[in-house]
Design a protein around this nucleic acid. Structure first.
Length: 477
RNA sequence: CGGGGCGUAGCGCAGUUUGGCUAGCGCGCCGGCUUUGGGUGCCGGAGGUCCCCGGUUCGAAUCCGGGCGCCCCGACCA
């Protein structure tokens, strides 16, 4: 097995190396598409389970809508069609015959779900309608990258309808809170929640909200979005209800999503030159056991204790893997599991059998410093607190990195320097055109207007006009 | 869509300039021995439409023409 390209040498290659060497995914024989391998899919499933639980706890229900959307549906909302038409995959032939109306392979499902909502909603009593679907979508991207932007990707898309503008806004914000909580508490990724600028918002939305995270190369990644669609789609699809005074009213709708892109975030936020670091709460394998022996005699004793340990930890509810592969040296296995990012490795050798102890090695502290001896008694408790501590340490170092590379800037010169490598926080009162000019000159865009504002006012970093809000700028994926 | 690179074993590549013997190497894979507390070593073996089509030639991975595909950088996009 060879080593990954160091991050400092070529970050993009490091990223694709890690994905393939850690066995998360591989290129498919179709341009821009990937095969998610079992280890990568297991991570996605853990992520899915965790998010799904949160959606259900807040009253949402899962459903499933068709992969194909009639072309005319896409065209009903003006901004929506303009935003998405360049990246649509279109089916024109079915069963050997040219279709009367082409079918779009869904790039997102606002339109077809809007069409169904119009039929399902009649009365204020039908509201709110809170639906989520887990699905694949297709966007014909010009420049695909594994997990970050693949032609086909997996995601969840929530779609809700409400009686009032206030309720729709509250839903949009609530969901963003769920995404933030998920990112921080499950994936150990600190994020900046905020509002999208006019030019960055979703095609057809009133407002878009986002959580932005800083990757290991100091670029930003939009990790999830939540949109208040206002009445735009309700009007396009006639989603109406009768209010208590028997008046027809348009609904206020929302949509929100998190995708397999999140896997890319996990790789780029935590990974190092030895490979992945899986956040413990989502890790497909939380603990790997590596038995070490020379003779058959040793093997019998070591395996007995290794199996006992395996069972103890499994019964305690951990995701445990026994690496009893023959013919591979311990050193090889250590490196292999470090590449895969398993948070805790348990080493058991003849010496440990004698002393009724094991060696625990933590992935976030490489080498000897991360190793500690631990008695077999009470192992499960110790593993539990160690996993917690690893989660915290991953989160803390990601947060420290983000803070160290985020600068508050007042002049445009300082701004330009800051966004070369990192985030810049700056007062902003510019127009859409100003934003485009900044992008042209620096490649940086407004990632969001953070919820967390200093208050008061300041001087816009670009126009010099009086500004009431601070924007977060960065180069983004 | 613009620029660059590449297509030869599962993966990474050499060979192509200057056509010629049975198409090689490393990793991985299979078998055996050896080794095992930080990427063991040795021996043997399996594995190929040299991207595709056409042409030139006694002879093409190699030369000529056409096509296809993928990757990277940029523009676009969320």
């Amino acid at each position: 097995m060879q080593k990954v390209t160091p991050r400092s040498e070529d970050y993009a290659r490091w990223y694709t190396d890690v994905i393939q060497m850690a066995d998360l995914a591989t290129y498919a024989p179709v341009r821009g598409c990937m095969v998610i391998k079992p280890y990568g899919y297991a991570l996605w499933e853990n992520l899915q389970r965790s998010l799904d639980r949160r959606f259900k706890e807040t009253g949402h229900e899962n459903a499933y809508f068709p992969l194909f959307i009639p072309e005319s549906f896409i065209k009903k909302e003006a901004e929506h069609v303009e935003g998405f038409s360049p990246e649509l995959a279109v089916v024109t032939v079915g069963g050997g015959e040219v279709l009367e109306e082409p079918l779009i392979v869904r790039p997102t499902s606002e339109t077809i779900i809007g069409h169904m909502f119009a039929q399902w909603i009649n009365s204020y009593r039908d509201l709110p309608l809170l639906i989520n679907q887990w699905a694949n979508v297709v966007r014909w991207e010009k420049r695909p990258r594994l997990f970050l932007r693949t032609t086909e990707f997996l995601w969840q898309e929530g779609h809700t309808a409400h009686a009032t503008s206030e309720e729709a806004e509250a839903e949009t914000i609530q969901i963003l809170g769920i995404y933030r909580e998920f990112a921080e508490e499950q994936a150990a990724i600190p994020v900046t929640p905020g509002k999208k600028s006019e030019s960055e918002k979703f095609a057809g939305a009133l407002h878009s909200y986002t959580i932005e995270a800083m990757m290991g190369d100091k670029r930003a990644l939009q990790s999830a979005t939540s949109h208040n669609l206002g009445q735009n789609f309700a009007k396009a699809f006639e989603i109406k209800y009768l209010d208590t005074s028997n008046q027809q009213q348009y609904c206020h709708t929302t949509s929100w999503g998190m995708s397999t892109r999140m896997v890319g975030a996990i790789i780029m936020v935590h990974g190092d030159d030895m490979g992945l670091k899986m956040p413990p709460r989502l890790a497909p394998v939380q603990v790997v056991i590596v038995p070490i022996y020379k003779t058959d005699e040793e093997r019998a004793a070591v395996m007995a204790m290794a199996n006992e340990t395996h069972e103890t930890l499994r019964n305690a509810g951990f995701r445990v893997k026994m690496d009893n592969r023959d013919g591979l040296t311990p050193g090889f296995k250590f490196n292999d599991w470090e590449m895969r990012g398993v948070p805790i490795r348990v080493e058991i050798g003849p010496k440990d059998v004698q002393n009724r102890q094991v060696v625990l090695a933590r992935r976030d502290q490489p080498g000897k410093e991360g190793k500690l001896f631990m008695g077999v008694d009470g192992l499960a408790e110790n593993v539990s607190s160690l996993l917690e501590s690893i989660h915290q340490s991953l989160f803390n170092s990601a947060l420290a990195f983000q803070k160290a590379n985020t600068r508050e800037v007042e002049t445009y010169d300082a701004f330009k320097e800051a966004v070369q490598s990192g985030f810049a926080l700056a007062w902003w009162a510019g127009s859409r055109e100003d934003e485009a000019a900044v992008k042209e000159e620096t490649k940086a865009t407004i990632r969001c207007i953070p919820f967390d504002q200093p208050g008061g006012s300041g001087k816009c970093v670009y126009t010099g006009k009086e500004a009431k809000e601070v924007a977060l700028f960065a180069r983004a994926y």
